[in-house]
Amino acid sequence: MQVQRWTRTSRWFGAAFCVLVVVLAFVPLVFDPDIVQKLTTLLILVLLAVMWNALAGYGGLLSVGQQAFIGIGAYGTVFFAGQGISPYPAMLLATVLAGAISLPISLFALRLRAAQFAIGMWVIAEVISIVVRLDQNLGAGTGISLIQLNQYEPNFRQAYTFWLALAFTVIFLAALFFLLRSPLGASLRAIRDDEDAARSLGVRVAARKRLLFVLAGLGCGAAGVLIVANTLFIEPTSIFSVQWSAYMIFMVLVGGLGTFEGPILGAILLFAIQTTFTQGGPWYLVGLGATAALFALLLPRGLWGVVEERLGLQLIAVGFRVVEKKPDA
């Protein structure tokens, strides 16, 4: 018997992924700005899904309040840009700000379990939203534009934003990938499978969860940054909307909770649905909500879970697999 990390498929896929990133980097040079903007949206969805899955799928932390960090990222960008910092550095600062704020929040939020954590995070998002609304300099309740980005020519602006989105997505995917492959990864999977058992084996559950929480804070902050860079206008009701959590839950549940590949698949699916049903509207949301609920009840490991189970396929080598060797005759 022998333990493997890389399979032939995952090796090929790793190489294909690198090629894909390089190809994507050329997208703004080839395609129209509106396609670039759409693909930026896709990358934002991937980033959000992967971060929510990092929390729920690996940390057992179901947050209905990640919009707090999306909002901090978006409003942070507007704030720093308003202080005279050039827009793109302002975006990096805002991402760091979201991560920095997630640390003190984690101190008490991680003490909570299940519903208390879920709704506790939601209330925190509400509180931050109210604070933003009280600030006239941030447009209060009516919203604010990132006018500083207008100094760039639209085509270039869209390209820069896309590259930033690509960079963020690759960085956060890589961070999670290496985190899961490191010795920490085994303890994270142990927490995912059985938190109490992991604790009794000496896994420092709180510290591990904090790591995921801050990573997700940074990642959702980055997504917020990209949202404001992509749309140039934000207002508190929509950027702090619990709808973001609904999207994240949909993508992760449909794609596959606790799998690495699943959330990416879920994000592509949501993107496809959004581009097909451009009208949006209540029926579309009824469908999303019902699908998420059905997956939670009937297919808790999502579509990717089925793929993994049926085909034994693993594209990304975060786990281990045991290979039975035929005994010598």
């Binding site: 209905v64 609904a246 839950i249 949301l285 909500g289």
Partner: peptide, 12 residues
């Protein structure tokens, strides 16, 4: 987590 996920979907 499942009751939370399912009822969140139901809420939407």
């Amino acid at each position: 987590l499942t009751p939370l996920l399912a009822t969140f979907g139901l809420s939407i």
